[in-house]
Nucleic acid binder design. Structure first.
Lengths: 145, 145
DNA sequence: GCTTTTTTGCAAATAATTTGCATATTTTTC
DNA sequence: GAAAAATATGCAAATTATTTGCAAAAAAGC
């Protein structure tokens, strides 16, 4: 298994190498799940990286353009960002309504069916967001409010 | 075909009958697609209804609780609301990335498949949001930026 | 009709995200 | 490797969606 380094990814995508940019990308690469801009910012702070929140936003924008990350917006109106392990890395999530824990779902390709159907309607460049909400096992058991 | 009136719906759900509440619900009932809180507010203004934007938000909240409407958040971070014709009226949308036109999709029940899969993971009360993005036929043809 | 409960309007608070601009850092060029 | 050109950053302020406190107004209950 090949380990891809943030630095070479940036170079590959023609992005200049700045301290914060590299750290933001790494935060996403090493995260076990999607992160909001604010969460990334806080991780950098904790690591002692001097970085501004707008810098985080601006870099996330760049990463989206370069297809390094994917994003989606939950019903709380906040966007989450996730490193794309490959250009066709596409998956969905389930969010626990109580503890907010988020789990990646490796769904089979039934969803392709949807996109086909939509292309037939005359749309092109079709993509989609699919997020699930529910209450996870441990919250159900612990009986939290 | 039965015509349901906003007023009787409110009564049925135990909601008091106020001028703006009825108008907000009607705006949703008569709309051909999902509306944001702000869009509803503007429709009321245009109709000459004296109504405040927070009133719109507060009523939408009520309608959600009473299962009169469904809501979802697009990638622009803005919530849209839609009247539920029946308690099991559940469907999805495709949004044109250029003209923002939104079309309802009457998808077959393949999606139930997903929810089953997730319940097996131990989640309960599972729901989901699924929205598509693409470029519609007329935008493709008109070659708008 | 009067009392209680609920809703509204308004202004202010929150929160996520974006932007302008001067400064700092990177990349490019020679 | 230094200077010039291009790009990125920090900071503060602007924007936008949404929420909230509170006093006044309207609706429901009796």
């Amino acid at each position: 298994m090949k380990i891809i380094k943030a630095l070479s990814l940036l170079k590959e995508k023609g992005l200049s190498n700045t301290g914060s940019r590299k750290r933001i990308l790494e935060a996403l690469m090493f995260s076990s799940g999607p992160l909001s801009a604010h969460e990334i910012y806080q991780r950098l702070l904790k690591e002692g990286v001097n970085c501004n929140e707008s810098t985080v936003y601006r870099n996330l924008q760049k990463f989206l353009e370069k297809d390094l990350v994917q994003s989606f917006t939950l019903n709380d109106g906040v966007s989450r960002f996730e490193f794309k392990k490959s250009s066709d890395d596409h998956h969905h999530h389930i969010v626990c309504l109580k503890c907010k824990m988020m789990k990646c779902l490796d769904l089979c390709k039934v969803e392709d069916y949807f996109e086909e159907m939509i292309k037939k309607l005359g749309f092109v460049s079709v993509s989609h967001n699919l997020e699930f909400y529910g209450v996870c096992k441990s919250c159900t058991n612990s009986g939290l409010k």
